[in-house]
């Protein structure tokens, strides 16, 4: 039972953390990235397709190539957000929402094409795949490769954001872009960097969500609201990598309740419908947001398009 709980908590925790870290990079550079949900869908789709293609290759090749492709797919999709909100100064929330809606539609179109047999299109967007190469058993606990990738990326994120020149400049662009520009920082470039990093992390996060827990996924469901939960994790984590890690673990306990309810004796006795457990992380996020609303440390310039002459 503990092994099972640990498996799902770690799984969802890493997903939420990766995506929330993505959101953090974007918002720290000044761009609200509500498109994370859509980025996850695209990353998951491409990752799954590549995994299917790579069946039979060595496990290491399967893992590294498909994870990289999932990240790059997310990055490419995030480019659309960057272009609209940085170059064209579009409303970031609306642009992101458009990309979320578009992602599910695109994913279904592509998944149906992938499912087609002999030139005939399938009517289902459900893709099957094998996750054998991604999952290991360590001391009786099922662990997937994303645990190691996630922890590595967490450490890298922390170092990049707080110990490098790039991180300092990125943060400056989210707080006061005009001031950053006055000392020679390329604001548009920094914002592009932030959004593209978030796309990369979001794409891997989407892949990490659907791959290791289940061997088939219907893209009709998109990614079931995980991207938005990750946004709540980011806010709860105060836009800081380590706090985001802790917040993600906290949320993933709620998220994994639905998976472990049947095997935990006292929860199984309650006989609650599964939907109640599905609801829990969302309720938890509302409560947490209400409690932390007073001391929000959101980057000051987020959501505001950068105008060079503006004060």
């Amino acid at each position: 039972m503990i092994a099972l709980a640990l498996k799902f908590t770690l799984l969802y925790g890493m997903v939420l953390m990766l995506v929330a870290l993505g959101g953090m990079f974007s918002e720290r550079s000044g761009i609200i990235n509500i498109a994370l949900e859509g980025i996850m869908v695209i990353g998951a789709l491409i990752g799954v397709i590549i995994t299917r293609e790579l069946q039979g290759y060595a496990g290491f090749v399967q893992v590294s190539v498909s994870v990289l492709c999932a990240g790059l797919a997310g990055l490419a999709y995030a480019f659309l957000l960057a272009f609209a909100s940085i170059n064209l100064k579009a409303d970031q929330t609306i642009g992101g929402t458009a990309l979320n809606i578009l992602a599910t539609a695109i994913a279904m179109v592509i998944a149906k094409r992938v499912n087609s047999v002999g030139g005939k299109l399938s009517d289902s967007a459900r893709l099957k795949y094998s996750y054998d190469a991604f999952v290991y058993k360590i001391f009786g606990v099922t662990v997937n490769v994303f645990l190691f990738i996630g922890i590595a990326l967490l450490i890298i994120s922390y170092i990049v954001l707080y110990k490098t020149k790039l991180g300092l400049r990125l943060r400056a662009c989210g707080e006061h872009p005009q001031a950053a520009n006055s000392v020679g920082v390329n604001v548009l470039g920094m914002r592009y960097t932030g959004v593209l990093i978030s796309g990369f992390l979001g794409g891997i996060g989407g892949f990490a969500y659907i791959l290791p827990s289940i061997d088939t996924w219907d893209f009709k469901n998109g990614i079931a609201g995980m991207g938005f939960l990750a946004l709540a994790v980011m806010i709860f984590g105060q836009w800081h990598p380590i706090k985001i890690f802790l917040a993600a673990m906290f949320f993933s306990i709620f998220k994994s309740l639905a998976n472990i309810a049947d095997s935990v004796s006292f929860l199984a006795k309650l006989r609650w419908p599964k939907e109640i457990y599905n609801m829990m992380p969302f309720i938890a996020s509302i409560v947490v947001l209400t409690l932390t609303s007073g001391k929000s440390r959101a980057p000051k310039a987020e959501g505001i398009p950068y105008e060079k002459g503006q004060r």
């Binding site: 100064k89 609306i94 695109i106």
Partner: peptide, 16 residues
Amino acid sequence: EIADVISGTIIYLCAF
């Protein structure tokens, strides 16, 4: 879903 892709594209364009 190509119809959804069309309307998704339209919102994306409308945003700017």
